[in-house]
Nucleic acid binder design. Structure first.
Lengths: 110, 110
DNA sequence: ATTATTTATCGTAATATTGCAATATATAAT
DNA sequence: ATTATATATTGCAATATTACGATAAATAAT
């Protein structure tokens, strides 16, 4: 059917999956990597850097904004995108906690 | 077009995206959570636990096997699935490294 | 050999995703 | 007001994903 049965899963399971899904495309990984390196940039920079059409980059930016991992501030005619470090930390913590169940439960520290 | 242009991205970018994509469905998150909790189980257990049809669970297991995060060993008529702890650790390290670029580069330890 | 049990595969329908051309929107500069 | 610049949105085609019924395959028990 192509439609995910979100209602049979917990909030947390859906949340983890939603985050991972957004990270599940190399263009979005490339955008984040570039932002890590360059701190902030505008859409046009990413079009040049990555080599996908402007509407395609814009669409990927939208999906990254959906999980708030990036934020954009209007600056003249362009929009300055950067990582939201706080959200990034939360996402990192969420994934680490999920993927390190034994560290989190049995050991206490890794 | 529905087809990802993998050729314009680096191996590492594609690898991270491939891992995240597999984690990008709540059923697969639920399967992993169950395996974390229960250590090992058979397909039928997951069908009961999660509430999706057997072919659907089987398909999700296949995708998890594609990134080797789980492995299955034949045991009579059933197949015993469990987490591959070594691969899990690698995946966790890969995602943490990607999502903590400043920790990895500037600080050295987090 | 037959039957029961368990999982994988095939086929298919419904929906989602990816990518881009064309166009709209919005601000800056002249 | 007009033009240039930058980004978002719309519409569409191609492909991928999700889900499941039907069926195949493979072993265990009788």
């Amino acid at each position: 059917m192509g439609i995910t049965k979100t209602e049979i899963f917990t909030e947390e399971q859906n949340r983890i999956a939603r985050i991972a899904k957004v990270l599940g495309h190399p263009a979005r990984i490339a955008i984040l990597e570039y932002l890590f390196k360059i701190q902030s940039c505008i859409c046009g920079d990413l079009v040049n850097e990555i080599g996908l059409a402007q509407p395609t980059i814009s669409q990927h930016l939208k999906e990254l904004k959906n999980i708030n991992i990036i934020k954009g501030t209007i600056e003249g005619t362009s929009i300055c995108y950067c990582i939201d470090q706080e959200v990034l930390n939360e996402i990192q913590a969420t994934l680490t906690k999920f993927l390190s169940p034994f560290c989190a439960r049995e050991k206490k520290s890794c």
